[in-house]
């Protein structure tokens, strides 16, 4: 019984996902690209980096990378804490 409920839920969710993917917007045609156009145009004069993705990761959105490094550090600390306590 519960298996049929789960199958129905899965069918509804998958149908919603597929329908959304078909209906979202045409592939390869972003409607608003001003910010990314700015990054592509000015990553060389402002940051002096050829790679616009690296310029965004470490310069324009440096706070994001700082939080990401914090998340990685927290995960390593958590794994060390979990796996050290019950050492056989």
């Amino acid at each position: 019984m519960s298996r049929w409920v789960m199958l129905l839920a899965f069918a509804v969710a998958a149908g919603f996902l597929i329908f959304g993917a078909v209906a979202v917007r045409p592939f390869g045609d972003p409607p608003r690209a001003e910010m990314d156009g700015y990054f592509n145009r000015f990553s060389q004069p402002e940051v002096a980096a050829n790679n616009a993705v690296t310029a965004i990761v470490f310069d324009y959105r440096g706070y994001d990378t700082l939080g990401e490094a914090t998340v990685l550090f927290t995960a390593v600390t958590g794994v060390a804490l979990i796996l050290r306590r019950w050492r056989a």
Binding site: N40, V53, V57, D64, L72, A75, V76, V79
Partner: peptide
């Protein structure tokens, strides 16, 4: 567009951190 690629980089590292924690559990 470079911004989705940069944010996907962040997302990949965070996914790796959560995967490591889940496997530890």
């Amino acid at each position: 567009l470079p911004t989705p690629q940069a944010l996907t980089l962040t997302s990949i590292v965070i996914g790796l951190a959560t995967t490591a924690l889940m496997l530890a559990f």
